[in-house]
Design a protein around this nucleic acid. Structure first.
Lengths: 229, 229
DNA sequence: GTCAACTTTTTCGTATACAAGAAGCTCGAT
DNA sequence: ATCGAGCTTCTTGTATACGAAAAAGTTGAC
C-alpha cells in the first residue's frame, strides 16, 4: 500500500531494476550500513544473476546518491558527514513545507479524508506508545501530504529524500516524549491545511522537520562527547 | 569555470561516467531531442566503447530522470508533458526561493563580491541585447546564488533541476522585452540578499522563476492554437 | 490497395571472458 | 617488532557472445 503512493514506474522485466529496488530497500532499512563495501560478485551470487545487471543497478543507485562508486575500488554505501545530514534535513524541511503550503491551497475531498484518517491512526499509535508503529503511521501521514500537494514531481523528490534520511531519522523517535510532541504538531499541521492556511501549514511542517534535525544534532553532540568522563 | 561550481565528484577513470556527462550535455543542450531513441550500439561506436559501459551510463541517466528505459524497447530521451514541466518549474521556484532566503541570511564577503560582479555582467549583456550571452550570464548569476546558500546539497539539486529545464527555458528568453525585465528582477534580488532580507529574496526569486513558467505556459498555449486560422 | 500472418533482421538483456589495477601477504632489512 | 619491496590473489572495468523479444519487411488473400 505504501508503494502505491510512490511514483515508481513499473519497469517490467529487467533484472537491473529489481536489483535496484532490493538494494535500495536494504540500504534504507540499514541492512547495509553506511560506508559498507558492496561486493559485486557476492551480491550477484546472492540474487542469482551475473555482475552485468548488478552493476547497472549500482550505477542507478550511485546516480541517486545512495552509493558512491570509487574507480577500481568498488561500490560503497554512502556515509554522510554530519554537515551533509544537516543540509539534507534543511532541504527536507523546505520540501515538506512546500508540500504543506500546496496541500492547503489544493486540498481535494479524497485527500482531506485520507489526511483525517491518517491523523486518527497517528493518534491511536501515539496513545499505544509503540515507537515502531507510530513511526510507520507517521510515514504514511507525510506521504499523504506529499500527494495532497498535487505535484507528482515534488512528491517523488520528497519521498526519495525522506527515504534517504530514514536511517538517521530512526535514531530519534525512540524517546517517548517526542512521540506526543510529534502528534501535537501533526494536529496543528492538519488544522492549518484544512483551514486553507498555506503559510501556517508551511511553517508548521518546516518546524516539524527541523525539530527532528535539532534532535539529531543533540544526538550527534552526545555521541561526540561520549566517554569523555 | 562553470563546472567548478557544480558538485560533480571526480569519478576518475571510468568510461561510464565520462559517457554519462557527455550524454547529459547532449540531452540538456538539445542535441538529442525529447522522445528521441538512443541506440546503444550506435552510441557505443560513436564513443569508441562497447555497449557495457554505455548501458551503465544510460542507467545513471535513467535514475536522474533524463532518459526512460523501456524494457526490450530501448532508451529514450525523456519527453515531459506540459503538466510535468509545470510541476518542475513550481519546484524550481521553491528551490531558488530557498537559496535566496539562505543566501540573504548567510552571505559571506566572497559571495557578496561574486554576486555583485555577476549582476554587473548581466547588466552589460542586457545592454548589448544579445540573448545568448545574457542567457549565459543569467545562468552564472543563479549558480552564484545556489552557492551562496551555503548548502551544497541544495545547490546540487538546484543545478540539476535547472539543467533539466534548460531546453524548455531556452524557448522563452528570446523576446527582447523579457531580458530587460529579467535584469530588473535580478537587481531586486541582489538588493534583498544584500539587505539580509530573507523573505524578500525568497519572494523575488520565486516570482522570477514563476514568471518564466508563465511565459512557457503562454508559449505552449500559442503552440496548441497554431495553424487554427 | 489493405490487411494479416509469417519470416527476416535488428536490438536488447544477460552471461561469460579477460586485462589491468588494487588489496593483501610473504619475507627480508633495520 | 616494525616497516617496506616484491609477489600473489582478488576485484573491477570493459569487451564479446548469445538467446530472446521486438521491429521491419515479405508474401498472399480478399
Amino acid at each position: 500500500m505504501l508503494t502505491s503512493l510512490a511514483a515508481d514506474r513499473d519497469t517490467g522485466t529487467r533484472h537491473a531494476d529489481r536489483l535496484r529496488q532490493a538494494l535500495e530497500a536494504d540500504i534504507v532499512t540499514g541492512v547495509f550500513k553506511p560506508g559498507e563495501r558492496l561486493d559485486e560478485q557476492r551480491l550477484a551470487d546472492r540474487f542469482g544473476v551475473s555482475r552485468t545487471p548488478l552493476r547497472e543497478a549500482l550505477a542507478q543507485l550511485a546516480a541517486n546518491g545512495l552509493v558512491t562508486l570509487q574507480p577500481r575500488r568498488g561500490a560503497f554505501v554512502v556515509s554522510l558527514t554530519f554537515q551533509e545530514i544537516v543540509e539534507r534535513f534543511e532541504m527536507m524541511a523546505a520540501l515538506e513545507g512546500m508540500c504543506g503550503a500546496l496541500a492547503a491551497r489544493r486540498l481535494v475531498a479524497s485527500d482531506r479524508e485520507a489526511l483525517l484518517n491518517s491523523l486518527e491512526a497517528c493518534r491511536r499509535e501515539a496513545a499505544d506508545g509503540d515507537s515502531d508503529s507510530y513511526y510507520q503511521a507517521n510515514e504514511v501521514f507525510h506521504q499523504i501530504i506529499y500527494r495532497a500537494a498535487r505535484n507528482a514531481f515534488l512528491a517523488e523528490q520528497s519521498r526519495q529524500l525522506q527515504a534517504r534520511l530514514q536511517p538517521y531519522r530512526r535514531l530519534q523517535l525512540r524517546a517517548g516524549r517526542r512521540i506526543a510532541a510529534s502528534f501535537a504538531e501533526h494536529e496543528r499541521i492538519v488544522a492549518a491545511i484544512l483551514a486553507g492556511d498555506a503559510e501556517g501549514a508551511e511553517r508548521e511542517l518546516r518546524d516539524h522537520v527541523l525539530i527532528q534535525g535539532d534532535r539529531l544534532r543533540d544526538f550527534f553532540a552526545s555521541l561526540a562527547h561520549a566517554g569523555e568522563d
